[in-house]
Simulated scan of single mutants.
Amino acid sequence: MKVLITGAAGQLGVELVQHCIELGDDVTAADRSVLDITDSAAVNSLLALHRPDAVINTAAYTAVDACETNVATAELVNGIAVGIVRAACEKVGAHLVHVSTDYVFDGTLNRPYVETDETNPQTVYGRTKLAGEIAAGSGASVARTSWVCSEYGNNMVKLILRLAAEDMPLVFVNDQYGHPSFTADLAPALRMLAIERTAGKFHLTNGGVVSWFEFVGDILETAGYDRRRVSPIATADLDPPRPASRPANSVLDNAAWRAAGKEPLRDFRAPLTELVARLT
């Protein structure tokens, strides 16, 4: 497969580039220095040059709190730019795989979200990512994921390992639930969508529901620390509160993936163990 990966310097992008190269793909790794996805001329030029079979778009403005004040940037990168990429893909016959988020939901449902559930984003980040889903079009693969962690970039696992080593106090909310997702498992699933050119919306996360408080405890325990070092707090008691609200329920049921006959991604504790071993 000839594949162009946007956002190639991000934690998911780096993993995807490595995975695709290992499997023999012809990879164009387009980080921000190579391609500004908001630049229509640049996007069209690069795709016309490489003529990929698929484009996997991992580029996004993911600073959830900053999106609340940098609205125009969030709209441009997370929404409008996806339409630019889609149009360029259509010109060269490339299949688009677009990565989205649990933030397109309001988090109030009392069960895991399936792909057909009504969206109702409560933040600028969520609204602009939903706009990106729409801009990707019905022919694209839209993969919603949550709580992404990897060996690269900034994420919760790396943060907790650093704070634990520095003997810092740890306090995390115990009333926000989700599925941690590890790029080691997410990248192969995204590549499969690209190869099979499977249109539609897919929830792609590792298995295992936890609160942030429980997840931090799992990270500590996996790294050999006492999980009792983390204390719980309610979201309402955070001081100061976060600028952007977080979904109380970010649990994504990977129903469409299973219905397509695909093997579910592993319980998150397996890739967590592997990642901690690499980082320590």
Rank of each mutant, 00 (worst) to 15 (best):
M168Y: 09
I195W: 05
T183I: 01
M192N: 01
D175H: 03
V173H: 01
D175Y: 01
I195T: 10
Q176S: 04
P169L: 14
L161R: 10
L186A: 04
E196T: 13
R191F: 00
M192C: 05
Q176A: 06
A189P: 07
M192D: 11
R191G: 00
G207Y: 09
T183Q: 03
K201Y: 08
G200T: 09
I195L: 15
T198P: 01
K158V: 03
H179G: 01
P188E: 11
L186P: 06
I195Y: 07
L159W: 10
Y177T: 04
F202I: 07
E196P: 01
A184E: 13
L190R: 08
P169A: 12
R197W: 07
K201Q: 04
G207I: 03
A165Y: 00
Y177A: 04
L186Q: 04
K201H: 08
L163H: 13
T205P: 06
D167Q: 15
I195G: 07
N206P: 07
I195H: 13
L204V: 05
A165W: 02
L163S: 08
R191A: 14
P180G: 02
G178W: 11
R197A: 14
D167N: 15
G200E: 10
M192W: 14
A194V: 11
G178M: 09
K158E: 00
L186E: 02
P180C: 02
H203F: 11
V171L: 14
L161C: 09
L161T: 08
A165V: 00
F172M: 12
Q176G: 02
M168R: 15
A165D: 08
G178C: 05
R162A: 13
H179R: 13
P188W: 12
L170V: 01
L190E: 05
Q176P: 03
A165F: 01
Q176Y: 02
N206A: 05
R162W: 01
E196G: 00
D185R: 02
T205Q: 09
L186W: 08
E166R: 13
I160C: 10
I160E: 10
A184F: 02
R162Q: 09
L163E: 12
T205F: 04
L204P: 02
K201W: 05
N174V: 01
E166A: 15
P188R: 12
D167K: 15
N206T: 03
V171G: 04
D167Y: 06
A189V: 06
E196Q: 13
G178T: 08
K201N: 07
I160Y: 08
D175C: 03
S181M: 07
I195V: 15
G207T: 03
P180Y: 04
F182C: 09
N174H: 12
A194F: 14
R191Q: 11
L159D: 09
R197S: 09
R162G: 02
D185E: 15
F202L: 05
